[in-house]
Amino acid sequence: MSLPEGVERRAFDGTERFATRGEPVYGEPTDGPWRAWNPHRSKLGAMLELGLDTGLVGGETTLYLGAAAGTTVSHVADFAGPTYAVEFAARPMRDLLDAAESRPRLYPLLADARSPEEYAHVVEPVDVVVQDVATRGQAAVATTNARFLREDGRLLVAIKARSEDVTRDPEGIFEDALAELRAAYEVLETERLAPYHDDHLGVVARPVDGR
């Protein structure tokens, strides 16, 4: 798997880690203009670390759903093109706004990822949708946002079993979620995000017609 342009492996305190160039956001170690990308705090970082074929090359127009305080989306904005960051809760949005200050192509949107009509008048068609939302119905969020993806675009989603049902076996939850995703996507690759994130499934998918 090749890394997207703008993401490099660099040594921080003797350990090789992924890094992007930008203002630090969450107290991560830096090396000149580079800042380390912590896969333990970022599902997308874990997907890259585990070698999933994300199809990212750098410079993509991106819609990020569940941006939270901007830990991951700030790295995305460092190497991607225009990056739309949707977050539902006000408190983390305050930190996301700080991250957006030094990133002119990062657009924070305080909106509910379950309701695209709250932001479709702002968000253009994108090459990549990255999704990390911790609500029930994660697959439904992905399918309703399929409308934003260009034909050859990619969905990169981390499905959190605990958000769907804390008691059910994660394997069954993932199967159901994948089945639901297939209404709008072709699933290309899946991988558990352990040891970085417990009970999370990383999924790479591309939109199918008739979404």
């Binding site: 949005m93 706004l97 957006a100 002119p104 657009y107």
Partner: peptide
């Protein structure tokens, strides 16, 4: 366009955060 978008989205989000935190 992207400059204007950045200004409009950050200002909007900041306003909304302020209002919502009064919630």
């Amino acid at each position: 366009y992207y400059e204007k978008l950045h200004e409009a989205t950050t200002t909007a989000a900041r306003e909304q955060v302020r209002e919502r935190e009064r919630a």
